[in-house]
Simulated scan of single mutants.
Amino acid sequence: MARTVNKKLAEFISERFNEIMIETGLDLEIFAAYSKIGYSTFRTYHSRTVPISVETLHRICEPFDILLSDFFTANTPLIISEKIKNKANTFAAQYILEKKKIIKEDDIIFHKKPVGSGNKWERDMIKYITLHTDYFHTERSIADMVHDFTKDFDFPLESGRIYELLRKYVGPTLKKEPSMRLNNDKKTSNRTVFLYSKI
Rank of each mutant, 00 (worst) to 15 (best):
R3A: 06
T4H: 06
T4V: 15
T4Q: 09
K7T: 14
F12L: 05
S14K: 05
E15T: 13
E15G: 15
R16K: 06
N18K: 10
I22T: 10
E23A: 11
T24R: 05
L26W: 01
E29H: 13
I30W: 03
F31I: 03
A32L: 02
Y34C: 02
S35K: 06
K36D: 06
T41Y: 04
F42W: 01
R43F: 08
T44I: 01
H46K: 12
H46Y: 15
H46S: 10
R48C: 14
T49G: 11
V50T: 13
S53Q: 06
V54T: 03
V54D: 00
V54I: 14
E55K: 15
T56Y: 05
T56L: 07
L57Y: 00
H58A: 14
H58W: 02
R59G: 07
R59Q: 10
R59V: 00
C61E: 00
F64Q: 03
S69Y: 01
S69Q: 10
S69K: 09
S69M: 04
D70L: 02
D70N: 04
F72N: 00
A74V: 09
A74C: 08
N75P: 05
L78E: 01
I79K: 11
I79S: 11
I80K: 00
I80L: 07
S81H: 05
E82D: 12
E82C: 08
K83T: 14
K83D: 07
I84F: 02
N86F: 03
A88C: 05
A88F: 00
A88Y: 00
N89A: 08
N89G: 03
F91V: 00
F91S: 02
F91C: 05
A92H: 09
L97G: 06
L97H: 12
E98V: 02
K99D: 07
I103F: 09
K104Q: 13
D106T: 12
D106Y: 15
D107F: 15
K113T: 03
K113R: 13
V115L: 13
G116K: 06
S117I: 10
G118M: 06
K120H: 11
E122C: 02
R123E: 10
M125K: 06
I126R: 03
K127Q: 07
Y128I: 01
H132Y: 15
H132K: 14
H132C: 12
H132V: 05
T133I: 00
T133Y: 00
D134R: 10
H137E: 15
T138N: 10
R140Q: 09
H147A: 14
F149S: 01
T150P: 04
T150H: 13
T150Q: 14
T150M: 11
F153D: 02
F153I: 04
F153Y: 15
S159N: 08
Y163P: 02
E164V: 08
E164W: 03
L165A: 06
L165W: 03
R167E: 04
Y169H: 14
V170E: 11
T173V: 11
K175D: 02
P178T: 04
M180A: 13
L182R: 12
L182I: 09
N184M: 10
D185Y: 01
D185R: 04
K186D: 11
K186N: 14
K187T: 15
S189L: 04
R191G: 07
T192L: 07
F194S: 14
K198H: 13
K198V: 13
K198Q: 09
